[in-house]
Design a protein around this nucleic acid. Sequence first.
DNA 1: AGATTCGCCTGAGAGC
DNA 2: TGCTCTCAGGCGAATC
Length: 272
Amino acid sequence: MPELPEVETVCRGLRKKLKSQRLEKCVLNRKNLRFEIPQNLPNLVKNQHLESITRRSKYVLLNLQNGQTLIIHLGMSGRLIFTPLLSATTKHDHVEFHFSKEKLVFNDPRRFGVVDICPTANLPHHKLLAFLGPEPLEEDFSPTYLKAKCAGKKAAIKNVVMDSKTVVGVGNIYANEALFDAGILPTRAAGSLKKKEIEKLTTAIKETLHRAIAAGGSSLNDYVQTDGSLGYFQHQFKVYGREKAPCTVCKAPLQKSVIGQRSSFFCPNCQV
DNA sequence: AGATTCGCCTGAGAGC
DNA sequence: TGCTCTCAGGCGAATC
């Protein structure tokens, strides 16, 4: 399940491979994913050089020479994989981007992903990008900012941190891990967090994401890098998926509960 | 308006 | 073996 570190890893893989390459053509093998894929997309991208590859939240942005930007979201199970131009289409290969030496295939069994196109100048107004909060690894995601966002909120801090209007890119896995590192129970009302706790949480989110990016992301079920290799941050999980296993700090059995319909893992001893 | 729930999807794994 | 059931979850939309 791609979260920010996985998407960042994918972007880095794309940059390495696609530096100043030309997108020769795009093939749509189906007309919709989570949303409908614009039918004129292949025409808009044909024979365009890639100016740059950027990321906003979990969206991969391929900026083209002609002022258009391809928007790709991996959803739950999406993959972007390089394969030889002549290799056969496999199940769930929904969109193919053909370059001179190989093709980049968007494969997504659950089809929660997105492929869209938008004039680069209009990106800030795109419906999927317009209302996003700050990037977690940027300066504007600060304790001061998070404190203001949490003020007066009764919702669980875990839900607030996973809300893309608060901060983008923090999914279930990294929310669990960051809350553990910060020593805060996921169920705590956001507005009840003290200044010190907000500071710890802000730091924990940034550090967790940095460590995960350094490990190439986490490979659970679906995620792989663009060359098919696995991320390995999942071996560093302290709480996620470790129900009843001993806490890495105090050895107490970790607990699992459902918060906002998401599995949440925590240490009842270390987190308050 | 803030908080919560729903719905889109398929594959993996459990249980029978 | 093969069926059915449950679960996983990003995130916009709908509802409370």
